[in-house]
Amino acid sequence: MGELRTRFGTGLSTVFLVLVLFWLAGMVLAPNLMMIDYALRPNLPPAALGGPDDTYSLSNILYLAGEPTHRAIFIKTIWASGLVALVTFLVCYPIAFWMAQRATVGQLSIALLLIIIPFFINEVLRTLAWFIILSYRGPLNSVLMNIGLIDAPIRWQGDGGVLAAMVYAYILFMLLPIYNAIESLEKAQVEAARDLGASPLRIHTRVVIPHAKAGIATGFVFTFMLAAGSYVAPSLLGSPGSRWFTEIIYNWFFEGGDWNRGAAYALVLLVLCLTVVLVTLRLARVNLADVAK
């Protein structure tokens, strides 16, 4: 605080502080408090608001527990988001290792450019590109049929399509933290392990991954949260059998007209994400400040 004042003067630092406080209170705290308020109250016609029925209860949340379809979709969203995070990790780790330890400066800048360029485009458009690639009469099926790998087109859209689009969409959030972590690993560590006779697998499990643990945990947390809260990929690329929990929340708000239940579902998702973040960080013995870096 004192440092802020010496650097920018009293007037400017007050403006900064007010803006930050406004942002925290108005954009972060208030909407969440309102969501909790909505979630705990019943869905009533405007006339009954404030009446004897307008009391706080957990019934909206318990409704989710009692509704088998929604419950199943909720649980599926959790493990599928975990799967997205895992697959994204498996895709990113070798690339990150290569970039951090093996690539020359020229190769590194080309690789970074190739990975970042797609992110210049909006997420919806990127997902639409996957929609086209994976469509029934789309390029992927026609290529596979032309080289004779398959006889009839495959219906990629559904779980597989959602997974592919999400992994693609969140690569950067996994890749950069891991790259940063591995980049700080001294090259001699890998050489020493190799010199002592360790196999590549052991070098990674004993030396590289323990070193990069904070980065990996950060990537997992980011990817999991983004996947669990994703709406575009499942709604564009999903099939009726691969519904995502966010789609149900959307339906409560915009089709079911029950904002209270929608808010309760969103609250459950939020609590779940927070839990996953904290557990992951605890498991990896990383604190939030490390993630923020």
Binding site: E186, A188, Q189, E191, A193, D195, A198
Partner: peptide, 16 residues
């Protein structure tokens, strides 16, 4: 290096 009967001590030591 993992197949040779040599062991190296690095300038930075490279302890894990």
């Amino acid at each position: 290096p993992n197949q040779r009967p040599t062991a190296m001590i690095f300038q930075s030591l490279a302890l894990f």
